[in-house]
Design a protein around this nucleic acid. Sequence first.
DNA 1: TTACTAAATCTACGGTGTAGAATATAATCT
DNA 2: AGATTATATTCTACACCGTAGATTTAGTAA
Lengths: 225, 225
Amino acid sequence: MRRAGRPRSGEEPLTRERILEAALSLVDAEGMEALSMRRLAKELGVDPMAIYHHVPNKRALLWGLIGEVFSGMRVPEERGDPADWRERVRAWARAFRDVARTHPKLVPHLASYPEAAAEATLESTEELYAAFEAAGMQPREIVGAVGVVVDYVNGFALAEASGALGEPDEQKEMIEMLDARPPGELPAMRRTFEALAEEDLGTDFEFGLEVVLAGLEAVTERRGE
Amino acid sequence: MRRAGRPRSGEEPLTRERILEAALSLVDAEGMEALSMRRLAKELGVDPMAIYHHVPNKRALLWGLIGEVFSGMRVPEERGDPADWRERVRAWARAFRDVARTHPKLVPHLASYPEAAAEATLESTEELYAAFEAAGMQPREIVGAVGVVVDYVNGFALAEASGALGEPDEQKEMIEMLDARPPGELPAMRRTFEALAEEDLGTDFEFGLEVVLAGLEAVTERRGE
DNA sequence: TTACTAAATCTACGGTGTAGAATATAATCT
DNA sequence: AGATTATATTCTACACCGTAGATTTAGTAA
């Protein structure tokens, strides 16, 4: 390693961007607990303290990571009727899920940096407000509707990132967990999972999404009564 | 502090329970980042390593914490018609939210210990499966329905724990964040929040819950068509 | 009394984030 | 060109972290 001092003209200098990039690969590959300033510096071939000239501290690094990932979320332009709020909401929800699925090791930590996530998704979320507005909802309803959609999608992304029921392995674990219990306990769960023994459940994002959409339709239509 | 050795007869011995209790108060009072083995030991008036005689490591301590909190979740017995699945689901969802709200500092970290949370809520979740079963749903539908409800409730609990839009302060922050942007951007969000300037939104748990319930009703009734 | 056991402390190691000083290079000024 | 300044980097150090392993003490059983 170089002794000290400014980077020589030839060398590519350390930048915030290079740092974030390296941090993201590290997290994606080895998980959040592998991301330490020292380890990250090693990955960049640089002294740990060098990072602090581009990022004030580790917390800010995490903010940057979340920002980079979730501000990269792209909601496809709606091609049909702008008043078809269902399709617009679907598009937003799928875009969010796609991003989350690309960085599953990052997802569980979003909860610890809520403002970062809010800021990073702010721009794309406008589309959600616009869709409900175009559907003729009142401000209060819009906030409520955005809330349900966001909460569901967040909840799902979290569950998916944790691998809950997503893979057959998890399904087997569930059955084992049930079998480990005294017989007679949890009968409804037992019946349900035994009936699905060999079936591939998948964690059905689309099902939940349709439930939320149908529910929004039902609840907001009830309004006029 | 005592020098070493077994606890003297008079002294109350260190127990797993006392440890979990102290850890929980610490987290509730000062947040997760305040919970270190050394700090916890200080709180208990004990050497850090003493804890390791009752808990194998810090990860297990967290598991225990989550277990203690969420296995304490109590779903009130349904008093009406057992076939009224809506009310049973409401009861479960409210019970979960209540527990989550009691320990907001713990909630964001549930995501990092998904198996612990699954195990701790296993018993109470039986009620959810039973309710959908009693409603006449098929196994696949049951899993899907439980999924949406759990995902929504988790998502909400997380948002609530982070204070998202819960307090007027957060609402103001949102407006400030919008004002800080170039004019013309995010118009739908601007219109929405300006219209609600002085209104108390609250994060409406019940609204979202009704959306999910109505959605489940709509989607599962569609099945017969 | 003596041996044994169990619960606590003590010591130590390698890791963490990061403050502050030292250093070497590039850019700027004369 | 030579001196000066600015700055990106490294170096050193500190307080904290989780925890492995050895040691001490007090209660229990022979």
